[in-house]
Every structure is written in C-alpha cells, then in structure tokens.
Design a protein around this nucleic acid. Structure first.
Lengths: 129, 129
DNA sequence: TAGATTAACGTACAACTGTACTGATACGCA
DNA sequence: TGCGTATCAGTACAGTTGTACGTTAATCTA
C-alpha cells in the first residue's frame, strides 16, 4: 500500500477531470475544467505534473503530446478522501457522517426517495452473494 | 458571510477537539488529542493560534490561562467541509456522495438499519412542521 | 523559597499549494 | 516555408501547513 503523499483539495478537482476523460492532454483537461471555473492553462499543467509526481496519475507519450491517465483508481482516491474526512471529523465513525448529512445538512424528499432506493439496491446485491 | 480562510485538514481535527470540550486551554485540547494520536503540545498550540487567526475560534483570558472556544458553530464548519468535498469530488451533487458511501465503500447490515432509522426520524420531524 | 512544571509567546523552517510566467519547440495552415 | 498556436519543461513565488524549539513568566510543590 505504497503511501502516496496526500492529495490536496485543488488536485482532487483536477484528478476528477482526468478520471472523467480517461486519458487526456493538458489541453483537454484544461477545457474540461475551464467550463466550470476560471483557471489558467499553466495552473492545470502544474497540477497534472504534481499529480504524476505524487503517483496519482501516469503519463504516456503520444508523439509530441503527453497523455495523462489515472494510476490509482478514482474510487480508491475518493474513498481515501472520505475516510480522511470521517477520521478527522467523526472519529472514524461513518454513522456520524450519515447523521450529519441527514440532520444537519438536510435532505430533500426526493433525495430521501433516492437514498431508500440505493439502500434497497444494495441489499438486493448483498443477497445475491 | 464573512469568508474565513479555509480550514485545513489538521486544523479540522484540532477544532473538533475544542468543539467537544466547549472551552479549553491548550493543555486540555492537547490532552484530548494526545489520547488518539502522537502530537506535540506546541503543535496543538500553533493550530489553536491559527484557528483563532482564521476566525474559527475565539479566546478569553482566565487569569494566567487562555481559553479557546468556538467562534463558528461546529455544524457550520462541518457543513462547509463536506460541501467543499462534494463540490470538488461530485460536482456538488450530494446524491453522488450517498452513492459512493453505499456502493463503493460498502455499509454493514447494522448500518443499513441505523440509516433507515435516521431517515424515518428525519421524515417524522419534517411532518412536525 | 528554590527547583519543577505549565502556559504563553515568538520564531523557525521545510514541504506543500495555488497560481502563474517564460522560453524552447513542434505543428498545422495560408 | 514562415507564422501563429498549442505543448512542454523549467522556474517563480508568496501563502499555507505540519511540526516544533526556545525563552520567559507565572504556579505549584517539596
């Protein structure tokens, strides 16, 4: 479980763009991000470089271009980020997170419905084992 | 909504200790934290100082001692931290977080039960309005 | 009351973050 | 084939973060 350096909040966002694209050049990642927020091309480039250095992404050369793609699965990184938060904020107790999400933050009726559905789906899957 | 500087991961942990104590000296916060992890007294002190500077905590003097206590409610900070994560990781879509928590991370049968209970409780409260 | 303990305060310092500029190339097109 | 445009590699740089030391003043204790 080679401990990678922790991923920062900003890096997380850039990494997400790469996950979404699968494999992409700086320019493509930039385009994807620039749609949602004001960010500089060079900034994206730096993030990608660092993500590679930290071991979250790997690169492959395609002629003149460099293609960035995940080296650690998205789910893995997301899981770690959430675990970290749960650890620091809720003593590692996931139920406390649920509780916060429902009570403190509030969820809509629609979300309640969808959540129930997710739960049922999950249970059904469990039964299949 | 006076924008405070963002709270860092480490700071979050220290802030949580203060929330738990209500009002405490560096020493008390240190004791609370040292139970769970190896950390230096001075480090705690620095965190507290910064949390005050950032506006998350305030202090009051009690004779020779300095008492730190929340200036921003715990729930508020936790909400912000989670919103931030959801924003960066799930496009601001909370359902995606639920989904990840259930499917990707997996929850136990017991948690499923408790989660249902939380949902019912929440719905009951909603009806009371 | 002298030494041990505690808290405050100031300072340090390398690593990490967010944000970006620059110069050298390579590529596509008029 | 020369020019604008996208890339890349390197560098910058202030602010933040994690971690901590040293000095001083007040407090407790034998």
């Amino acid at each position: 479980m080679s401990k990678r350096p922790p991923i920062s909040r900003g890096e997380l966002e850039v990494a997400r763009a790469v996950w979404g694209l699968g494999e992409a050049t700086v320019g493509q990642v930039y385009d994807a991000l620039a749609e949602r927020k004001d960010i500089d091309y060079s900034t994206v480039q730096t993030y990608l470089r660092r993500l590679e250095a930290k071991g979250y992404l790997k690169t492959r050369r395609q002629g003149r271009n460099k293609l960035y793609c995940p080296r650690v699965a998205a789910g893995q990184v997301v899981r770690e980020a959430i675990n970290d938060l749960v650890e620091r904020l809720f003593d590692g107790e996931p139920l406390a997170l649920w509780q916060h999400l429902i009570q403190e933050r509030g969820i809509t009726v629609e979300e309640t419905r969808q959540l129930r559905q997710l739960l049922e789906q999950w249970e059904a899957e469990q039964d299949d084992r």
